[in-house]
Deep mutational scan, measured.
Amino acid sequence: TTFEIRVGDLRITLHNADEEEIRWAEEALRRGIHADEILRTLEERRR
């Protein structure tokens, strides 16, 4: 599944994310964390 998060002009697309990952990514985007860093962190958490 694919889920797109939008916060203002910012956007990130997550693939195969669970609800916790989606909530975490949305909050991180709101705090101004760059999408590349969010994706990198999620990848590390999945390992």
Score class of each variant (00 low, 15 high):
residue 11 R to W: 12
residue 8 G to E: 08
residue 42 L to H: 02
residue 42 L to A: 01
residue 32 G to I: 00
residue 14 L to R: 01
residue 9 D to N: 10
residue 13 T to S: 06
residue 22 I to D: 00
residue 16 N to K: 05
residue 16 N to P: 02
residue 25 A to H: 00
residue 17 A to S: 04
residue 19 E to R: 09
residue 1 T to D: 13
residue 3 F to W: 10
residue 28 A to F: 05
residue 26 E to P: 00
residue 32 G to T: 01
residue 31 R to D: 13
residue 8 G to W: 03
residue 6 R to T: 14
residue 37 E to H: 10
residue 47 R to W: 09
residue 29 L to W: 04
residue 29 L to R: 01
residue 18 D to N: 11
residue 19 E to H: 12
residue 8 G to K: 06
residue 40 R to K: 15
residue 47 R to D: 12
residue 1 T to A: 13
residue 35 A to I: 09
residue 41 T to S: 09
residue 46 R to N: 03
residue 24 W to I: 10
residue 36 D to E: 14
residue 37 E to Q: 07
residue 20 E to S: 15
residue 14 L to E: 00
residue 4 E to K: 01
residue 4 E to H: 05
residue 41 T to V: 14
residue 37 E to N: 08
residue 2 T to A: 15
residue 14 L to Q: 00
residue 12 I to K: 02
residue 19 E to M: 11
residue 35 A to L: 07
residue 34 H to V: 07
residue 30 R to T: 14
residue 23 R to W: 08
residue 31 R to G: 09
residue 47 R to F: 15
residue 46 R to K: 07
residue 40 R to P: 01
residue 27 E to H: 10
residue 23 R to P: 01
residue 12 I to G: 01
residue 35 A to W: 05
residue 19 E to N: 08
residue 31 R to T: 09
residue 7 V to N: 06
residue 13 T to R: 04
residue 17 A to T: 11
residue 17 A to E: 02
residue 35 A to E: 12
residue 17 A to R: 03
residue 12 I to R: 01
residue 45 R to C: 04
residue 42 L to E: 00
residue 22 I to V: 06
residue 31 R to P: 00
residue 41 T to A: 15
residue 19 E to Q: 13
residue 39 L to K: 10
residue 8 G to Q: 04
residue 23 R to E: 14
residue 5 I to C: 14
residue 34 H to C: 07
residue 20 E to L: 11
residue 30 R to Q: 12
residue 45 R to K: 07
residue 45 R to S: 11
residue 43 E to M: 11
residue 4 E to W: 03
residue 22 I to T: 06
residue 2 T to Q: 09
residue 35 A to D: 05
residue 13 T to D: 04
residue 14 L to V: 13
residue 44 E to D: 08
residue 42 L to Q: 01
residue 15 H to L: 09
residue 41 T to W: 13
residue 45 R to W: 15
residue 19 E to I: 12
residue 2 T to E: 15
residue 45 R to V: 11
residue 4 E to V: 08
residue 4 E to N: 01
residue 6 R to C: 04
residue 15 H to E: 13
residue 16 N to R: 05
residue 24 W to F: 13
residue 38 I to Y: 01
residue 43 E to N: 04
residue 30 R to N: 10
residue 12 I to P: 01
residue 23 R to I: 12
residue 39 L to A: 04
residue 15 H to M: 13
residue 24 W to M: 07
residue 10 L to P: 01
residue 26 E to T: 12
residue 40 R to G: 06
residue 32 G to D: 03
residue 31 R to H: 11
residue 28 A to I: 02
residue 12 I to D: 02
residue 12 I to E: 02
residue 5 I to Y: 02
residue 30 R to W: 07
residue 20 E to P: 07
residue 29 L to A: 08
residue 41 T to N: 10
residue 34 H to W: 09
residue 4 E to C: 09
residue 17 A to D: 02
residue 3 F to Y: 12
residue 33 I to L: 05
residue 10 L to H: 14
residue 40 R to H: 15
residue 43 E to R: 04
residue 43 E to T: 03
residue 37 E to W: 10
residue 38 I to H: 00
residue 13 T to I: 14
residue 36 D to F: 10
residue 43 E to D: 09
residue 35 A to V: 14
residue 8 G to S: 03
residue 47 R to E: 15
residue 47 R to N: 15
residue 22 I to P: 00
residue 34 H to K: 09
residue 37 E to M: 13
residue 14 L to H: 00
residue 45 R to E: 06
residue 22 I to Y: 08
residue 47 R to P: 08
residue 39 L to D: 02
residue 43 E to A: 06
residue 31 R to C: 09
residue 35 A to H: 10
residue 37 E to Y: 08
residue 32 G to F: 04
residue 19 E to W: 12
residue 19 E to K: 11
residue 33 I to C: 07
residue 36 D to H: 01
residue 12 I to Q: 02
residue 37 E to S: 10
residue 17 A to Q: 01
residue 11 R to Q: 06
residue 18 D to W: 09
residue 40 R to L: 14
residue 16 N to S: 06
residue 27 E to V: 01
residue 3 F to M: 12
residue 39 L to H: 12
residue 44 E to H: 02
residue 45 R to N: 14
residue 5 I to F: 03
residue 21 E to P: 00
residue 47 R to T: 15
residue 38 I to P: 00
residue 10 L to W: 07
residue 44 E to I: 08
residue 28 A to P: 00
residue 10 L to M: 13
residue 43 E to K: 05
residue 5 I to W: 01
residue 10 L to K: 13
residue 21 E to Q: 03
residue 41 T to H: 07
residue 38 I to K: 00
residue 12 I to F: 10
residue 1 T to R: 13
residue 1 T to P: 07
residue 41 T to P: 00
residue 30 R to F: 11
residue 18 D to V: 12
residue 17 A to L: 07
residue 35 A to M: 07
residue 40 R to V: 11
residue 15 H to T: 12
residue 2 T to C: 13
residue 10 L to G: 06
residue 28 A to G: 07
residue 25 A to Q: 00
residue 32 G to Q: 02
residue 18 D to S: 13
residue 17 A to I: 07
residue 24 W to C: 06
residue 33 I to G: 05
residue 44 E to P: 00
residue 9 D to T: 01
residue 46 R to V: 04
residue 4 E to Q: 04
residue 2 T to K: 11
residue 20 E to I: 08
residue 37 E to G: 03
residue 8 G to M: 03
residue 7 V to L: 09
residue 35 A to T: 11
residue 39 L to P: 01
residue 39 L to S: 06
residue 39 L to Q: 08
residue 4 E to M: 03
residue 40 R to I: 12
residue 34 H to R: 09
residue 47 R to M: 15
residue 22 I to K: 08
residue 22 I to C: 04
residue 25 A to E: 00
residue 15 H to S: 09
residue 15 H to Q: 06
residue 45 R to Q: 10
residue 23 R to Q: 11
residue 20 E to N: 10
residue 1 T to C: 15
residue 28 A to Q: 13
residue 9 D to K: 04
residue 44 E to F: 08
residue 1 T to K: 14
residue 8 G to T: 02
residue 21 E to D: 09
residue 34 H to P: 14
residue 36 D to K: 06
residue 24 W to K: 00
residue 14 L to N: 00
residue 24 W to G: 00
residue 6 R to G: 08
residue 19 E to S: 10
residue 27 E to A: 12
residue 5 I to A: 02
residue 17 A to F: 06
residue 6 R to S: 15
residue 20 E to C: 14
residue 7 V to Y: 14
residue 23 R to T: 11
residue 25 A to K: 00
residue 1 T to L: 14
residue 46 R to C: 04
residue 23 R to Y: 11
residue 44 E to Q: 06
residue 22 I to N: 01
residue 8 G to N: 05
residue 38 I to D: 00
residue 2 T to F: 12
residue 34 H to E: 13
residue 34 H to I: 07
residue 5 I to V: 10
residue 15 H to D: 05
residue 36 D to Y: 13
residue 40 R to T: 13
residue 5 I to H: 01
residue 45 R to P: 01
residue 6 R to A: 07
residue 10 L to T: 13
residue 20 E to F: 08
residue 43 E to I: 09
residue 29 L to C: 04
residue 47 R to K: 15
residue 4 E to G: 00
residue 34 H to D: 14
residue 47 R to H: 15
residue 40 R to D: 10
residue 2 T to R: 10
residue 43 E to H: 06
residue 9 D to A: 08
residue 25 A to D: 00
residue 40 R to W: 14
residue 11 R to D: 05
residue 18 D to A: 09
residue 24 W to T: 02
residue 10 L to S: 10
residue 15 H to I: 12
residue 44 E to A: 05
residue 38 I to W: 00
residue 37 E to F: 07
residue 19 E to F: 07
residue 36 D to P: 11
residue 12 I to L: 15
residue 40 R to M: 11
residue 39 L to V: 08
residue 13 T to K: 11
residue 36 D to R: 06
residue 28 A to V: 03
residue 26 E to Q: 09
residue 45 R to I: 15
residue 24 W to E: 02
residue 18 D to T: 13
residue 4 E to R: 01
residue 26 E to L: 06
residue 4 E to F: 04
residue 36 D to S: 12
residue 29 L to K: 01
residue 3 F to S: 15
residue 13 T to A: 04
residue 16 N to D: 12
residue 13 T to H: 10
residue 42 L to P: 00
residue 22 I to M: 06
residue 30 R to V: 10
residue 11 R to S: 15
residue 31 R to I: 14
residue 31 R to K: 13
residue 27 E to C: 15
residue 6 R to M: 13
residue 37 E to I: 10
residue 15 H to N: 12
residue 16 N to G: 09
residue 24 W to Y: 15
residue 20 E to D: 10
residue 23 R to L: 13
residue 43 E to V: 07
residue 36 D to A: 04
residue 25 A to G: 03
residue 42 L to N: 00
residue 11 R to I: 15
residue 15 H to W: 13
residue 39 L to I: 15
residue 29 L to Y: 06
residue 19 E to A: 12
residue 13 T to V: 14
residue 21 E to R: 00
residue 19 E to Y: 12
residue 33 I to N: 05
residue 17 A to P: 13
residue 2 T to G: 08
residue 37 E to T: 10
residue 1 T to N: 12
residue 17 A to Y: 05
residue 32 G to P: 00
residue 45 R to A: 13
residue 15 H to K: 08
residue 2 T to W: 15
residue 22 I to G: 03
residue 25 A to R: 00
residue 35 A to R: 10
residue 35 A to K: 09
residue 38 I to V: 12
residue 24 W to A: 02
residue 18 D to I: 13
residue 29 L to G: 03
residue 17 A to C: 02
residue 2 T to Y: 13
residue 38 I to S: 00
residue 26 E to S: 08
residue 40 R to F: 14
residue 46 R to L: 04
residue 5 I to S: 01
residue 7 V to T: 04
residue 47 R to G: 15
residue 24 W to R: 01
residue 21 E to M: 04
residue 34 H to T: 12
residue 11 R to C: 06
residue 27 E to D: 11
residue 11 R to T: 14
residue 21 E to S: 04
residue 43 E to Q: 06
residue 36 D to I: 11
residue 12 I to C: 04
residue 18 D to H: 08
residue 1 T to V: 12
residue 13 T to F: 05
residue 7 V to W: 10
residue 6 R to E: 13
residue 24 W to P: 00
residue 27 E to G: 08
residue 42 L to S: 01
residue 18 D to Y: 09
residue 44 E to C: 01
residue 25 A to T: 07
residue 26 E to M: 11
residue 30 R to G: 09
residue 14 L to F: 04
residue 43 E to S: 07
residue 28 A to T: 03
residue 12 I to S: 01
residue 43 E to F: 08
residue 18 D to C: 08
residue 8 G to R: 02
residue 23 R to C: 05
residue 9 D to Q: 08
residue 12 I to V: 13
residue 26 E to A: 13
residue 17 A to M: 09
residue 13 T to N: 06
residue 3 F to D: 09
residue 7 V to S: 05
residue 9 D to E: 10
residue 30 R to E: 07
residue 10 L to I: 13
residue 44 E to T: 05
residue 16 N to Q: 06
residue 32 G to K: 03
residue 43 E to P: 00
residue 32 G to H: 04
residue 26 E to V: 05
residue 28 A to W: 12
residue 36 D to C: 10
residue 41 T to Y: 12
residue 2 T to L: 11
residue 6 R to P: 03
residue 33 I to E: 11
residue 32 G to V: 01
residue 7 V to I: 14
residue 22 I to A: 15
residue 40 R to Y: 11
residue 7 V to A: 04
residue 31 R to E: 11
residue 10 L to F: 09
residue 31 R to W: 09
residue 8 G to V: 03
residue 20 E to V: 12
residue 19 E to P: 11
residue 32 G to R: 01
residue 1 T to H: 13
residue 27 E to W: 13
residue 38 I to E: 00
residue 34 H to A: 04
residue 8 G to I: 03
residue 16 N to V: 07
residue 19 E to L: 06
residue 7 V to P: 01
residue 29 L to N: 03
residue 8 G to D: 06
